[in-house]
Simulated scan of single mutants.
Amino acid sequence: MKAPRIPIAQEGYPFILFAGFSTLILAILEFAYAALPALAVTGFVLWFFRDPERVAPPHADAFVSPADGKVIVAEKITDDRFMQGEVMKISIFMNVFNVHVNRFPFGGEVKEITLRPGKFYSADTNKGALHNEYCAITVTSKNNIKYCVVQVAGLIARRIVCWAEKGDSLATGQRYGLIRFGSRVDLYLPAHFSTSVKKGDKVRAGETVLGYLGAA
């Protein structure tokens, strides 16, 4: 029998414990004017680090969203930092109210992980996309297609967490990391990839289908 999983990301435990302990101390000292706001902060931190279960779509070629949030880019571009030539780029912006656990968009093997220090501009801008700190994972899919998924830090989000390691084989929808307190995830796909989402659409990590990735 599988033990029940606590639906909170482990990276949130220190923040939750600190906020909860501070609230308890303020309550014991009967500083109600401070304890009530501290309790609200504790509740927000708990809610922010929530990690609900998600069910990946049954279609073997379904390419799912790696993040909760809003699509801010869905177009063909050229960006040789991650893939050569023209690619389809899909960017998803996560605000502080979204679930921040990231999920693998399509099953495959991690070929390369690149963490590049950078700035911390607002993540929903082109300036942020070009200059902010990022963690890029290059993947060769189970049907031999190369793609790249990039966690990008933001103005508030200054801590990228990536649990994946080079050589790992991950399944579609599997958890692989998170970004603390809002940011974005960029996808770089083959130019022929036909996406079913557009700018402004709301998506859910591990569940919303962005398109279908057939054989190379």
Rank of each mutant, 00 (worst) to 15 (best):
D186P: 07
A123D: 10
A215V: 12
C135R: 02
F31T: 06
G43I: 10
Y188C: 05
A215S: 15
C148V: 15
G177I: 01
L189T: 01
V161R: 11
G211W: 00
T78M: 12
W47D: 08
K166L: 01
H59N: 11
P58G: 04
G128V: 10
V149Y: 05
H192N: 11
F193Y: 06
I179D: 08
E165V: 02
F104I: 09
K142V: 12
G200Q: 06
K70Y: 00
F93M: 09
R103K: 13
L36A: 09
E207K: 04
F104W: 06
L130A: 15
R158Y: 06
F120V: 08
L17H: 04
G211K: 03
T195L: 04
P14A: 11
Q84T: 15
N144V: 03
V71S: 06
A74F: 04
D51M: 11
W163Q: 03
A35D: 03
N95D: 14
A60Q: 13
A129M: 11
D201M: 03
F44S: 04
Y188I: 06
Y121L: 15
R175T: 05
I113E: 05
E109I: 14
V209E: 10
H100L: 08
F31M: 12
V149E: 00
A34Y: 13
N102G: 07
V139M: 01
D51N: 15
C135V: 00
V55D: 09
V96E: 07
L170S: 05
K119Q: 15
K111M: 14
L29V: 07
A205Q: 07
A191S: 14
S65M: 09
C148G: 00
W163Y: 14
V73S: 03
R81F: 11
S194N: 12
S122D: 13
S194A: 13
A129K: 05
A164T: 08
F15A: 14
G177T: 07
L26T: 06
K2G: 04
T138A: 14
L17V: 15
